[in-house]
Simulated scan of single mutants.
Amino acid sequence: MSIFGTTLNGSLCIPAFQLSSEKAIKVKVKIPFGNKYLDAIFSVPKKKLTYGVILTHGAGGDMNFRQLVSLAAYLVSRGILCLRFTCKGLNIAYRAKAYKAVVEYLKLSDDYKLSGVFLAGRSMGSRAAASVIRQLSQDSDGDFIQGLVCLSYPLHRPKLQSKLRDEDLLFIRCPVLFVSGSADEMCGKQLLEDVASKMKAPKKIHWIDKANHGMAVKGRTTDDIMEEINTQVFSWLRENIELEHK
């Protein structure tokens, strides 16, 4: 079945991910979380929305971490809504609980009615996203989740490769993209490939050559590396959105 539809007057309805020329609208929001609120920013394409991506940061920083801002700008310029949010704290259960609140907020939003959403995060944020997907896969909300994007997934602590953080990954069934540095001190290359081989979910790993956990590479500019990351993420999203419509 074609992913192209028609409007009531018969004109062509172009999928959101093909809208590359529109400028985004940014909307700051406060997302309820227990007795507090999470700071968040919507980057909204001007055309009709179809799919969205939720982005969050690692153990340090916030939603304005440079890589997340760059990725959000890249994706929204191609028609994909992005919701970035900040959640401070080093407790993974707490971070996952906050991420789940954001997913529920977006799903129930009257302003942004999406067909589905991809969860994404950097470092600890990707662990939180994986945990949420595992939780939601057991109920009806799982249908809303289209996939997982892990930027610098922290598979283990530095120099502690015997204790892997792979429990959630092995339970996930939706598509997963890993973008990691081949010299990441928190994600041994062979270890991640071994974990991926055990996963039941469709998965892809894109290695940034010689990059560390912070995605820095000697001899390459930050902008150059972010361009590589952004194009890989968008390409993967587009492939999975197309598969969803076949």
Rank of each mutant, 00 (worst) to 15 (best):
R84L: 04
F85I: 00
T86G: 07
T86Q: 12
C87S: 08
C87H: 12
K88D: 12
K88N: 13
K88L: 14
L90E: 13
L90N: 14
N91Q: 10
I92G: 02
I92N: 14
A93I: 05
A93F: 07
R95Q: 10
R95P: 01
A96E: 13
A96I: 05
K97Q: 15
K97S: 14
A101G: 08
A101T: 01
V103H: 02
E104N: 12
Y105I: 02
Y105K: 02
Y105S: 05
K107S: 03
K107A: 08
K107I: 00
K107R: 13
L108H: 09
S109H: 07
S109K: 10
S109Q: 12
S109V: 03
D111H: 09
D111K: 13
Y112V: 00
K113V: 07
L114C: 00
S115G: 12
V117E: 05
L119I: 03
G121W: 06
R122W: 08
S123M: 09
M124F: 09
M124C: 01
M124N: 06
S126V: 01
S126N: 06
R127A: 05
A128P: 03
A129Q: 06
A130K: 05
S131R: 12
V132H: 03
I133N: 02
R134E: 15
R134W: 00
Q135C: 02
Q135K: 12
Q135P: 00
Q135Y: 03
Q138L: 15
D139S: 06
S140C: 03
G142W: 06
D143Q: 13
F144T: 04
I145M: 09
I145T: 02
G147T: 09
L148T: 03
L148H: 10
V149E: 07
C150H: 03
L151Q: 12
S152E: 04
P154D: 05
P154A: 04
P154S: 04
L155Y: 04
H156Y: 12
R157C: 10
P158N: 14
P158T: 11
P158C: 12
L160D: 13
Q161G: 04
S162D: 15
K163Q: 14
D166V: 03
E167Y: 05
D168G: 01
L170G: 05
L170R: 08
F171I: 08
F171R: 15
F171K: 15
I172K: 07
R173Q: 14
C174P: 01
P175K: 14
V176Q: 11
V176T: 14
V176G: 07
L177H: 09
L177Q: 11
F178V: 09
V179G: 09
S180D: 15
S180H: 07
G181F: 07
G181D: 06
S182V: 09
S182K: 15
A183T: 06
D184H: 06
E185D: 10
E185S: 11
E185G: 06
M186S: 07
M186W: 04
C187Q: 13
G188D: 08
G188S: 06
G188M: 08
Q190D: 15
L192H: 10
L192D: 09
E193W: 05
E193A: 14
D194Y: 01
D194W: 01
V195W: 08
V195P: 05
V195H: 11
S197N: 05
K198C: 15
K198A: 09
M199V: 02
M199C: 11
